[in-house]
């Protein structure tokens, strides 16, 4: 069962620079929430705070509350948080020294799955869900870097969902991909949202309109507007949102 994420007064710094200026948001469970906004508005920083990736950058700092369901994510070990909240990055980053199979199996093995049969099943299931199984089932032992960029990104999605997280964060997952691969990733998001709470950062407004149930518009480290996607794109409540989605800036 996926759970909602609630964010209260979230502030984040890089060194002395305040990049998130107090965000309050309730991200609903089993929905796709898109985060849009111009470059440098803090949208990537925001989702990197949700799985405590932000603090891994030297000099970075976070304040505020993030809860997954009733669980306070900023109490306890960040490693546990990241096992519950999977992430897909801007550029495909499969583990370059591992095979396609091992890219997915590694997370499972570290999670304690030892049985070979179980591993094979779980790898196949994840690749099926990521719509990659048909393309790679005969070459599972080849290096992950032998795949195309789009395939690599779907492998990364498979890797993230293999460990059965509750939330999937996607930081501009299609920005380095060609249009066909982008479409496949978007279809995938559509299919995965029944199982996971998905938060997707995108600079592509059409993409947000296509995949998201809810959309949040960020500007200069602040949340300007957060509503269901149709409202944001057809009847925004804030002048700045309207200016951005109609292409007057950004």
């Amino acid at each position: 069962m996926s759970q909602p994420i609630s964010v209260q007064n979230l502030r984040a710094w890089y060194g002395n620079q305040l990049t998130l200026k107090g965000i309050d948001m309730e991200l609903p469970a089993s929905q796709v929430t898109a985060i849009i906004g111009p470059s440098g508005c803090g949208k990537s920083t925001f989702i990197r705070c949700l799985n405590r990736m932000h603090e891994t950058v030297p000099g970075a700092r976070v304040e505020g509350d993030v809860h997954l369901g009733t669980e306070d994510l900023y109490k306890g070990d960040p490693v546990d948080v990241r096992r519950m909240i999977g992430m897909v990055f801007q550029k495909p980053n499969p583990f370059p020294t591992l095979s396609i199979f091992d890219n997915i199996a590694l997370g499972l093995r570290l999670g304690g799955m030892r049985n070979r049969g179980q591993l094979r099943e779980a790898v196949e299931r994840s690749l099926q869900m990521a719509a990659l199984w048909g393309e790679v089932k005969d070459r599972l032992s080849e290096p992950a870097t032998s795949l195309s960029g789009g395939q690599q990104q779907r492998l990364c999605i498979a890797r993230a969902i293999a460990v059965q997280p509750e939330v999937l964060l996607m930081d501009e997952p299609a920005s380095a991909l060609d249009p066909v691969s982008t479409l496949r990733v978007e279809e995938l998001v559509e299919q995965l949202k029944d199982t996971y709470t998905i938060v997707i950062v995108t600079h592509n407004m059409q993409q947000a309109a296509r995949v998201a149930d809810e959309t949040a518009f960020f500007l200069n480290g602040e949340l300007v507007e957060f509503a269901d996607t149709t409202t944001i794109f057809t009847n925004p409540g804030d002048k700045r949102t309207e200016d951005y989605i109609t292409g007057r800036f950004g």
């Binding site: 096992r83 583990f95 020294t97 591992l98 590694l106 990364c156």
Partner: peptide
């Protein structure tokens, strides 16, 4: 070792040691 690869491991919930053991060291082997 590109940060991107290490972040792939961190984002998967690997510990610092696991990232070193399974990503960084194999990369520079």
């Amino acid at each position: 070792v590109p940060v991107l690869y290490r972040e792939g491991g961190i984002g998967l919930g690997m510990t610092t040691w696991e990232v070193v053991r399974y990503i960084a060291v194999p990369y520079i082997r």
